[in-house]
């Protein structure tokens, strides 16, 4: 993958990524993290939440920040992943990137 190109991950890939990171932070198995639960139900503090966002942005290779509300205001992690995937493809469209 070209180092400047956005990784156009699917909503499912993003969901798995977020769930794996939450599981790591709160120290449980990923299977114990329900995609139907809202992000703020895991007691993750703001510093760790921002680290998660920054890592996600780096993984996706985004030129811009993701709006935090996509993660915090979504009713469930699944919805957050859907919203983030949409934002990512918008950014990719702006960048004029092609699907891998």
């Amino acid at each position: 993958m070209n180092s400047d190109l956005i990784r156009q991950a699917s909503a499912e890939e993003i969901e798995s990524w977020i769930i794996a990171r939450i599981a790591e932070i709160v120290n449980v198995a990923p299977a114990a993290v329900s995609p139907d639960a809202p992000f703020d139900s895991f007691g993750i503090d703001s510093a760790k939440a921002i680290s998660l966002m920054v890592e996600l942005e780096n993984w996706l290779n985004l030129p811009d920040e993701l709006p935090l509300e996509l993660l915090f205001e979504a009713e469930a992690i699944r919805d957050a992943a859907t919203g983030i995937a949409a934002a990512v493809s918008d950014m990719a469209a702006q960048q004029g990137g092609v699907r891998p």
Binding site: S46, A47, A49, I50, M53, V54, E65, L68, E69, F72, E73
Partner: peptide
């Protein structure tokens, strides 16, 4: 961004 998260 951390402040933003605290407010959110």
């Amino acid at each position: 961004r951390m402040s933003a998260a605290g407010f959110r």
